[in-house]
Design a protein around this nucleic acid. Sequence first.
DNA 1: ATGACTTATCCAATAAGA
Length: 268
Amino acid sequence: MRVATWNVNSVTARLPRLHEWLDLVEPDVLCLQETKTADFPSDGVEQRGYEVAHVGDGRWNGVAILSRVGLEDVTAAFAEQPGYANEDEDALLAVPVVESRAVGATCGGLRVWSLYVPNGRSVGHPHYDYKLGWLTALRAALAPEVAAGPFVVTGDFNIAPTDDDVWDPAAFVGSTHVTARERQALADLRALGLRDVEPRALKGRNFTYWDYRAGMFHKGMGMRIDLVYANDAVTVTDAWVDREARKGTGPSDHAPVVVDLDLTNRGP
DNA sequence: ATGACTTATCCAATAAGA
């Protein structure tokens, strides 16, 4: 089974690239993040044989799972998923809203989650606390599923697991995405019985994100923040970053991560 | 250079991204 994850930075803007990529790579399951729409444009992907589970609330966020090997038990948001109170003109009216950042489904016997972990904005910002709390709640919600059978949680985690996962650690001192607390949240998640499926780089380093600005991609100044975590009931035969998808006209600022796996059919 | 792009939205200036 081929499973992939891709932060497309608007599925509407990326639709031609998405269709082209599906035809080229032919994933069985594709997890998308930042669809940035309330209405997923599903015609083209359905013509290609995919069912779609999408959770989207409009301008921001939005996650989806596309599957051509079955799509069952769709879960929009995980149990007790925290909300975020965006700053309001009257702060007293700010109400936490559960955002479109998580969708789960069972695809051909594999339990899959597509995540768009909150960015955090800056260390000490309320969004940073939201990010950490969100990951704590995620861990609790996923624990039973990790123990139950073949399981993969993937998506844009907005955390670089180690200093090797950013182009220059010195450039990130004091920034989000690299702090000890964020990395500990990832370690806590792995402690459920998950491992980081590190993709091989077809060229250069195995980064998955490069800022649009200042030619960062062509300078190799990227980060590995799009991750695939799998449990012991999943045997990985290959994993790679599709850097080609970051090139050319109208790319996302993220590249897809592609994983080929077998279900070993034994409990973890 | 507290920047550089890109996105959707109140279609124009803004918020957010990481």
